[in-house]
């Protein structure tokens, strides 16, 4: 489909831009790709509208917002899941990979975090911006990272706030003023991770030859893992399924 093509292209573009080219080695073009399939009762996981009447300033920028706990891509076949973090869990050994210089960004817009899932590499910086004309309180609930708890009371307060991330399993970030507002941050030691979008696909690229355990994590459904072996600049397809 068109959208997935764009996403793929974008993902590819980002990957090519962000990864500092290391001296050519076997496996540079290795790709693990696949879909995150949802098998379950669609009716049970309907998205609901969020009542933002508490703060009229939330309404101004957008009409309605929906819950983000479970987002199923209904237009894909099979049904796929959005906002799943896919990453290499083990198999990389002690290899060290350069950290992307690119800054991650999350914007509070319409009283939701955009994007809802932020995936990054240890040492990468995250910039938090407020696009709403209202007060937000950003509260990190991590185990490894620093427990940030700060406010952004005004729109576009200069440059927002930057935070350097440390590797950690996905943790929640919530807004204490708007209780429905939350997002997740996943930080890895390596650059081989991806977040599924509207097409429910992921793509991990550029890892060295080897056999890996890959993990898919979803905020409501937990994790699934799969094994993948890759060598010689090939593309391996590995679909993973959540069956709640």
């Amino acid at each position: 489909m068109k959208l997935s093509m764009i996403t793929l292209a974008a993902a590819f573009a980002i990957n090519t831009i962000t990864f500092t080219p290391t001296p050519c080695q076997a496996g540079d073009k290795n790709v693990i790709t696949g879909k995150i399939i949802f098998k379950g009762d669609l009716a049970k996981y309907k998205r609901t509208k969020i009542n933002t009447s508490k703060d009229p300033n939330c309404k101004k920028s957008k009409k309605t917002i929906g819950s983000e706990k479970v987002i199923i891509n209904k237009k894909t076949d099979p049904l796929t899941l959005r906002n799943v973090v896919v990453s290499i869990k083990s198999g990389l050994g002690d290899k060290v990979f350069p950290v992307s210089k690119e800054e991650l960004k999350v914007t509070q817009f319409g009283c939701q975090y955009k994007p809802h899932i932020i995936a990054g590499q240890s040492g990468q910086t995250l910039r938090i911006l407020n696009g709403d004309n209202t007060n937000h309180n950003i509260h990190f609930l991590p185990k490894v990272n620093d427990e940030h708890n700060f406010t952004q009371p005004k729109k576009d307060m200069v440059k927002g706030k930057t935070i350097v991330l440390k590797a950690e399993d996905p943790f929640k970030v919530k807004c204490d003023v708007h209780p429905w507002m939350n997002c997740y941050i996943a930080v890895f030691e390596h650059p081989f991770f991806d977040v599924t979008g509207k097409d429910g696909t992921f793509k991990l690229a550029g890892m060295p030859d080897g056999s890996y355990t890959i993990q898919a994590w979803h905020e409501s459904f937990g994790t699934v893992t799969a094994e993948a072996e890759i060598s010689g600049n090939t593309i391996v397809t590995k679909d993973m399924t959540f069956e709640p």
Partner: peptide
């Protein structure tokens, strides 16, 4: 009442 959020509504 919980209203369903229409996927195609601005997202």
């Amino acid at each position: 009442k919980v209203e369903e959020f229409d996927e195609d509504e601005l997202d």
